[in-house]
Amino acid sequence: MVMCTQDVDTSDCVERFHGTDVPASSVCESCAFKVPDGSVTLRTHSDNKVYVSTQHPSLQARYAAMRQIIMKIFTIETNYDMSKPLSFGNSKHGYSVGLSFKLRDDTARGSERRYSLIFTSESEQALFSRHSAILDQLNAMVEYVTARSAAIIEDRRRSDNNNESYLRRSSRMPKNRSLIELLQDEELFIKLHLWAASLLEQLQC
């Protein structure tokens, strides 16, 4: 879990949802939620909601449900076409729609990194009645991220005329890299938070 944005009623105690320090040993570079100034929580206020982004949901029950959902999306559930969304849910783990995508990266195992944008709701009705709006946003974001990543790779390929480096083994060794590095955007997570908050605000669920 790299990042999780939740909406909180202003009447609720927002501090309960704030993130805690995640020990560096428990997350690798690729999964770290990196925000400037060493913060662990991103917050956005709107009229009657507060949107909070953290690495993990701080509430135990939600964390357990998210873990299950993520595990299912990456290991169990099958999907013939990865560009197509996958929806599933039950009365224990909630209802989710996920859209997966891959980013090319020579330093990743298999030369690609797999991610998934997942929208989860407690209410089946709320999720499916807004299914189209959610999917449009997920698709638009995946499109943006993959296009940016492709453009960066293309740029690098053009400027890369150093014949020496490709022979070096270390340049292609698998290593962990953050999305920030892949997309060359230091503020990526803040922007992702804003996008998720605006999606939740738009849906008001």
Partner: peptide, 23 residues
């Protein structure tokens, strides 16, 4: 999506380890 991702964000930190971002 494009508007958000291409904008520059301004954030302030009212308390420790919390960043407030305006929408």
């Amino acid at each position: 999506v494009k508007a958000i991702m291409s904008s520059t964000v301004e954030a302030e930190s009212p308390e420790e380890k919390v960043l407030d971002v305006a929408l």
